[in-house]
């Protein structure tokens, strides 16, 4: 199988392959241009943007953990205007789907952000961050309440001007399938999951938390089993396409998510292992599928055989 056979099209989003980079781990994309050809990626999800610039949380903001990391960045970003004026024009010249990631404090502001981005032809889709664990207002609060998820999705969908809307779901909930259904009721075209798991680290020598925010989001290979379980449950619960995220650090990891039903994947923390990581993943997936004698990605998707 060739990489060119990995073209995917779902929920109104078309990409040259199913490998995307996850929000907050790939900047606005151009930071990684020295390390690979951005057009080798299916899509780039830009780092979260809000209406106004945000300074983010105090330091320290990151901590390495076994097979993972904690972060509490707090959506530091230059605001939507800077994104549209500075990052987008350069990104548009790259042959890759650019997804904007939206962060706001209430449904109305989410709608406002969507409205601004809806007219930008360089934006292929909108990803709604209702699940950031690192900000005190909004963020995770939406992500844990199905009624709020539906409300926010509806507000974004209404102003999205026909662009596909994807909801990024939090794993920090009692039942992720309920949240997924709420997003679908609100009009989500695609679901992406999972965001980070809430975690914590402490230093017994100076008796301080490892993050100034005390708690933060755990990511990396350590969370892959949780992510896989969530994607599996959501794929069983709803009919809209799902993008799998969580600890993907190899072609095999990526295909595990496809096999439980995901249409595409997002690579996050693995971009920190080395900055050229994501560029070769699609080729590795194609090669691995060939080894598995799979001719079409669709045949492999959702092919997990469950015990009767």
């Amino acid at each position: 199988m060739e990489v060119s056979d990995l073209k995917v099209s779902f929920g109104g989003l078309s990409m040259s392959n199913p490998v995307m980079t996850a929000s907050g781990t790939f900047g606005f994309g151009l930071e990684f241009a020295p390390y690979g050809d951005l057009s080798r990626l299916g899509g780039i999800v830009a780092k979260g943007i809000s209406m106004k610039p945000r300074e983010g949380n105090p330091m320290p903001r990151i901590a390495e953990t076994p097979c993972g990391m904690l972060n509490a960045i707090g959506i530091q970003n230059p605001g939507v205007e800077a994104f549209v004026k500075q990052a987008l024009p350069a990104l548009k010249r790259q042959d890759v789907a650019v997804v904007a990631n939206l962060y706001a404090c209430d449904a109305e502001e989410f709608g406002e952000l969507a409205g601004i981005l809806s007219t930008e032809d360089g934006v292929a889709a909108l990803e709604v961050n209702v699940s950031c664990p690192n900000v005190k207002e909004g963020g995770a609060a939406f992500g844990q309440d199905p009624a709020q998820i539906a409300k926010v999705t509806e507000a974004v969908k209404k102003r999205a001007g026909g662009k596909p809307v994807m909801l990024k779901l939090s794993p920090n909930v009692a039942d992720i399938a309920t949240c997924a259904r709420a997003a679908v009721e609100g009009g989500a075209d695609i679901l992406s999951l999972i965001n980070t798991l809430i975690g914590m680290g402490v230093d017994i020598r100076n008796r301080r938390p490892r993050l100034a925010n005390v708690v933060g989001g755990l990511s990396g290979p350590a969370i892959k089993p949780v992510a896989l379980r969530c994607v599996h449950q959501v794929c069983q619960a709803v009919d809209v396409p799902v993008i799998g995220i969580g600890g993907i650090a190899s072609a095999e990891d990526a295909l595990e998510f496809i096999m439980v039903g995901a249409h595409a994947v997002q690579v996050g923390t693995a971009n920190f292992l080395r900055p050229d990581f994501a560029f070769t993943l699609a080729e590795d997936m194609a090669q691995l599928l060939t080894e598995l004698c799979v001719e079409r990605l669709e045949d492999f998707r959702g092919s997990l055989q469950l015990p009767l």
């Binding site: 781990t25 990684f32 300074e55 983010g56 320290p60 960045i73 530091q76 920190f272």
Partner: peptide, 23 residues
């Protein structure tokens, strides 16, 4: 020499405050 994950400006884990207080 702050702790950093990526080295390329993406993780935002290594920030400091400049003279105007911006990260």
């Amino acid at each position: 020499e702050n702790r950093m994950a990526c080295g390329v400006g993406a993780c935002l884990g290594c920030v400091c405050k400049d003279g105007e207080g911006h990260h």
